[in-house]
């Protein structure tokens, strides 16, 4: 069994609103082992994204991590000084967000944005960074990379932008890639191509993948292990094979029954 890379222990992230305290993540524990794909599944508002942002220590105000530990490489990330944390982000833990249009800077070229992290994090000079950017773009399946790096984000389609985001997240060879709903805004065909590309790259590079999604189909296709979240708590975890063949928690069963399937004739969905 591969070693544990990341361990989230009893994580609590609360949002302190004027009216009330929202317990977005309330005592969640899971781990990610080397080179595996772990899925974090839940509906909107279940706390799956906040739990990922907590790993990166990027929880937006008025949210605060109020308890628990996040152990990465033997250290508790929650206790690191901000300066060391900055070195972990991108360098050791990469992240891909849902909306590629808002995560890319519209006034910088694709090449400049990709090169930035290489120069800052790995101390590459202009020329080496450029070579590496071309390599990265080719890796994520963008043709004519040496020409395309001069393009701006708006000149790319949603799928291409998400490819750029993946290239950026993988540029420093992180040990873990966190992908937060990476294909939700895309068409099914593009979704399949991007996830195929991302998972096979992660496999080649030996990068573990923490895949956050609401789509159980994606989970069935790509994940090794699954954690199901509901209202800030983990309701079920296990291997993908176990959860799909014999879900134990009522919520997991409900989720599975809610989704229409293309391989099944019409049967009533479990509504309400």
């Amino acid at each position: 069994m591969a070693g544990t890379l990341l361990q989230v222990k009893d994580l609590k992230t609360y949002f302190y609103m004027p009216e009330a305290t929202v317990k977005a993540v309330d005592g969640v524990s899971y781990d990610v082992r080397e080179a595996e794909t772990v899925a974090l599944v839940g509906e909107s508002g279940s706390g799956k994204s906040v739990s990922a942002l907590s790993i990166m220590r990027l929880v937006p105000y008025p949210g605060r991590i109020v308890g628990g530990e996040i152990i990465f490489d033997g250290e508790n990330l929650l206790e690191l000084p901000e300066k060391r944390m900055r070195n972990i982000r991108g360098r050791h833990i990469g992240m891909v967000f849902q909306e590629p249009m808002t995560s890319l800077n519209p006034v910088l070229t694709i090449g400049a944005q990709l090169a930035e992290s290489l120069k800052v994090r790995l101390g590459m000079d202009e020329g080496t960074a450029r070579q590496r950017v071309i390599e990265l773009l080719r890796m994520v399946g963008i043709r004519d990379a040496d020409r395309r790096l001069r393009s701006y984000p708006h000149q790319f389609s949603g799928g291409m932008r998400q490819r750029v985001m993946i290239a950026m997240a993988l540029s420093c060879n992180p040990e873990i890639l966190i992908a937060d709903e990476p294909t939700t805004a895309l068409d099914v065909t593009t979704q399949a191509q991007i996830l195929d590309m991302m998972t096979s790259l992660a496999q080649q590079m030996g990068t573990a993948l923490l895949l956050i999604t609401h789509n159980l189909g994606i989970v069935a296709r790509y994940a090794d292990r699954i954690n199901i979240m509901y209202e800030g708590k983990l309701v079920e975890s296990g291997t993908a094979d176990d959860i799909f063949s014999s879900p134990t928690h009522a919520y997991t069963r409900k989720l599975l029954e809610c989704v229409p399937r293309i391989d099944k004739k019409r049967s009533r969905l479990a509504a309400s």
Binding site: V188, T189, Q191, A192, N215, L216, G217, I218, V219, A220, R221, A240, D241, I243, F244, S245, L256, V259, R261, I262, D263
Partner: peptide
């Protein structure tokens, strides 16, 4: 198009 749609069932997938 059909083959791109993932099925929420491990065995079928």
């Amino acid at each position: 198009l059909l083959s791109a749609v993932p099925i929420p069932d491990r065995a079928a997938e």
